[in-house]
């Protein structure tokens, strides 16, 4: 029993070793760093990037840009869901937008945004655009699922609007907002990076990815991609911890 438990703990390491070995084997068989650099070459490139100021400036700027877009998206998503929940006219007016934004390819938005605004702002806008429909959609569903019994109770005891909002509506919607916030951080991150690749703001992970590609520095390209993954995990952890702390307060 304990021996299986110990060996089960080893599974993730074995899995990692397997894939790294496969990667290394494939890289050796191809034999061209330009097409597929091996894991050690990528690690080398990554370690070379780490101590440079450019690396941290790019990473920091990208994080700030995307986090700002993400938060803006959450605020706008909440705002839109309030507007469409209180007024049927606004719902009819705004709801088609959500479907259009959802169905439009990210690349179209990026190119359009590049026509409309400075390249520094394009990634922020893209992150926002990805977050708004998720938050809006989740909250609207949550509003539809509000317990009519509780709302009637509030009416019976003559709760003020503010009291009903604060004591029934907000707590009822908290799980929907939480799940929207968690789902959309990944979307915001990936679309933000994609926008950076195309728009190339001065300091950005996405721009670095693009430069690595045009200068045919494939190991750097891999190293930057690795960084994107690391920061993505970091940012998701950040959001998760923040939400957990909020949950504890409630």
């Amino acid at each position: 029993m304990t021996s299986t438990a110990t060996s089960k703990k080893l599974y993730p390491f074995l899995a990692a070793a397997f894939w790294l070995l496969l990667w290394e084997t494939a890289a050796r068989m191809i034999g061209k760093e330009l097409i597929l650099p091996g894991p050690f070459r990528v690690l080398q490139a990554f370690l070379a990037l780490l101590p440079t100021a450019a690396y941290w400036q790019s990473a920091g700027a990208t994080m700030l840009r995307i986090l700002f877009g993400y938060l803006l998206g959450i605020v706008l998503g909440i705002l839109f869901s309030i507007l469409t929940s209180v007024s049927q006219l606004l719902d009819a007016l705004l709801s088609p937008l959500i479907r259009i934004i959802r169905a439009t390819p990210v690349a179209s938005f990026i190119i359009l945004a590049m026509l409309w605004m400075g390249k520094e702002r394009v990634p922020t806008l893209l992150s926002t655009l990805m977050v708004v429909p998720v938050v809006w959609g989740n909250l609207s569903e949550g509003v539809k699922a509000l317990d009519p019994d509780l709302l009637e109770m509030a009416r019976a005891f003559r709760f003020s609007r503010m009291k009903t909002f604060g004591s029934i509506i907000v707590p009822s919607l908290r799980p929907a907002l939480r799940s929207a916030a968690l789902t959309s951080i990944g979307l915001a991150w990936k679309s933000g990076i994609a926008a950076e690749v195309l728009a190339q703001p001065s300091k950005a992970i996405g721009s670095q990815l693009y430069y690595a590609k045009i200068y045919l520095e494939t190991p750097e390209l891999f190293a930057w991609t690795l960084s994107v993954i690391f920061f993505s995990i970091l940012i998701e952890k950040l959001v998760r911890t923040f939400l957990k702390r909020q949950e504890g307060k409630a």
Binding site: M153, A156, R158
Partner: peptide, 16 residues
């Protein structure tokens, strides 16, 4: 004018 209700269901707020 101002009745005080006890509903058949308890209708309590589980978050408090």
């Amino acid at each position: 004018e101002k009745p005080s209700f006890l509903f058949q269901e308890d209708r309590l707020l589980p978050w408090y």
